[in-house]
Design a binder for these strands. Structure first.
Lengths: 226, 226
DNA sequence: TACCTTATGGACGATCCATTCCACAACTGA
DNA sequence: TCAGTTGTGGAATGGATCGTCCATAAGGTA
């Protein structure tokens, strides 16, 4: 019975994300978003509440996407390919940052840096996201250990935390200005130093020349949430 | 012949840093800084130009301090203690983040996240800082290799980049909400996976129980620039 | 078709903020 | 002591920004 909305909510959120991503929370004006989406202020406020609520919505969606990308890459599959999945994921994240020529970084990092200290919602959501990623990584490391690709004496929890740190760290040093080639090397190196089972040499890939440990490395994921 | 300044420039910069650190660039008002320093707007603008210039000054000083802390910890000393120096540095950085209960994070990361994309000065300064840290780490890794504490077949450049990424990554995941204990473990793990020379086992420290690889770990550095 | 409900979007109000301005203070050198 | 010069701090300015309001449009329903 009421008049239906003339806009696609998802599309509006996408445009809003683009704005927040480009200029941060404080740096984005509601007028910008109105302009970018073609919506009037009335519709915008009517549909999403206020600037804060709109950002929370965008930020939450982003976090969901980040975890989904990890799930696509990591969850499921035979133990025999667990190490390859881990490698693919880490390299994907490195590639995302490396190809981010505009240096927009990741909205998760950007939002957390700007707001986590004062906004419990953002703080909570980013923390959830970290633990979700940690769980995915730990599971995969355990799988690789079962298959004998990673030393089973190592603590999967710790290795997962290390890999997560490397992934998030690549984003950080990328935004800080390290060049793409270095970023890709970091991903290689991180995977190369993972402890191999006793008896196997694992050092080779840390040597200067080797960069071929890793299987094919996909570009431009559908939702390239870096 | 002119009237001398009644304020201490260093002290004013310190207070300004505190503000920018706490609330970011856009989130900090010049009135806040005036209030915090006790200066009037006229003095503030007369002495530092405008908000942007003031931030650049603060940001630059911070970057200098970050490198200085690394130099104090890393540069100089016998090769025999190079690995210990590396370990001390990485743990110090982890401790800084772990003890940052207010979750302010690091101004370098915060500033870069907020401004690097649009402000070439910030982008350039943060990039310089990264390469300076990289150089310090590489030098120290080479020293440890000479002494036989790290496999000399490994590329010091790559290991340095990995360690830098871990250090910056710890800051990032810390701000994102991982608990202090996990952060400390990450530092342990990163050091434990460094490739040992052939013949030596290096895996032990990745095992759950071990956390004692590292020498004493200082708290509260003079200029605790995390 | 007439009516009711919701959407729309631009104008508006109130607030906030960076920057400038200015009257006055403080110090130096003659 | 007396200019002359620079520092000081708060009031004023001008522009920007968030959120509200309201007259109107557009579906649905009877």
């Amino acid at each position: 019975m009421p008049r239906p909305r003339a806009f696609d909510e998802r599309q509006v959120l996408e445009r809003a994300r683009e704005q927040f991503w480009a200029t941060g929370y404080a740096g984005t004006r509601m007028d910008d978003i109105a302009q970018a989406t073609g919506l009037g202020k009335g519709s915008l406020y009517g549909a999403f509440g206020d600037k804060g609520k709109l950002f929370h919505r965008v930020f939450g969606d982003w976090c969901t996407a980040v975890v989904e990308v990890a799930e696509e890459r990591l969850a499921g599959g035979p133990d025999a390919e667990a190490l390859a999945r881990l490698s693919g994921y880490v390299h994907l994240m490195a590639e995302n940052t490396a190809s981010d020529t505009e240096r927009r970084g990741c909205l998760l990092a950007k939002g957390a840096a700007e707001l986590a200290q004062h906004d419990p919602t953002v703080a909570g959501r980013s923390a959830e996201t970290m633990t979700a990623l940690l769980t995915l990584l730990r599971t995969e490391i355990s799988a690789a250990q079962r298959h004998g690709d990673i030393d089973s004496a190592a603590d999967p929890e710790r290795l997962a935390a290390l890999l997560l740190t490397v992934v998030r760290g690549i984003e950080a040093v990328g935004k800080a200005g390290l060049d793409p080639e270095t970023l890709r090397n970091i991903a290689d190196t991180a995977l190369a130093v993972l402890p191999m089972p006793e008896g196997q040499k694992h050092l080779a890939t840390v040597r200067p020349a080797r960069t071929d440990l890793v299987p094919s490395r996909p570009h431009d994921p559908p939702d390239s949430a870096s």
